[in-house]
Amino acid sequence: MGKSKLPQDRALDLLADVGDGLRRKLPDKAVQWIETGAALGALRAGAKVAGGVVRRNPLLVGAAVAGAGLLWYAARQGAGDAGRRSPPGARAAARRSGAGRLRRLSPG
């Protein structure tokens, strides 16, 4: 499939070769700066999209924030109850032994 490759495939191969060559020639610090710049660019683009969504759908965002707050509250309550609850098998053992039942005192 040497010459019958699509032009897009050849272009991608060429770009990959150029990128590899640049990575080998540039010092590590420069590559780190380029990666950081790319990450900041992606973060900025994501922030723009998020801002647009908030502007167009404020009710949806409010509902999402309220739902996240309720989940946090439920998790917090569950963590607090875990210390006060009895161990998992304690109730079944108490039922089998008859603990906690009122017994009639027989006369005499």
Results as ranks from 00 to 15, higher is better:
G2E: 14
S4W: 09
K5P: 03
P7W: 07
D9I: 15
D9W: 08
R10C: 09
A11K: 14
A11I: 13
A11F: 10
D13N: 11
D13Q: 14
D13F: 05
L15V: 12
D17Y: 02
D17N: 08
V18T: 09
V18K: 06
G19A: 05
L22M: 11
R23I: 01
R24A: 02
P27I: 08
P27D: 15
P27G: 11
K29P: 00
A30F: 06
E35W: 01
T36R: 04
T36P: 00
G37N: 00
G37T: 01
A38L: 06
A39N: 04
A45K: 13
A47K: 13
A47I: 11
A47H: 08
A47Y: 09
K48T: 10
A50W: 10
G51H: 05
V54P: 00
R56Q: 06
R56L: 10
R56E: 06
P58C: 08
L59E: 12
L60R: 13
V61R: 05
V61S: 08
V65E: 13
A66K: 15
G67C: 11
G67K: 14
G67Q: 15
A68C: 07
A68V: 12
G69R: 14
L71N: 11
W72L: 15
A75Y: 08
A75H: 12
Q77R: 13
G78T: 10
G78L: 10
A79R: 15
G80P: 01
R84V: 14
G89T: 10
G89L: 11
A90K: 14
A94Y: 02
A94T: 13
A94R: 15
A94W: 03
R96N: 03
R96A: 09
R96T: 09
S97P: 00
G98I: 04
R101D: 00
R101E: 02
R104F: 01
R104T: 03
L105A: 07
L105M: 05
L105F: 04
S106Q: 06
P107D: 02
P107R: 07
P107E: 02
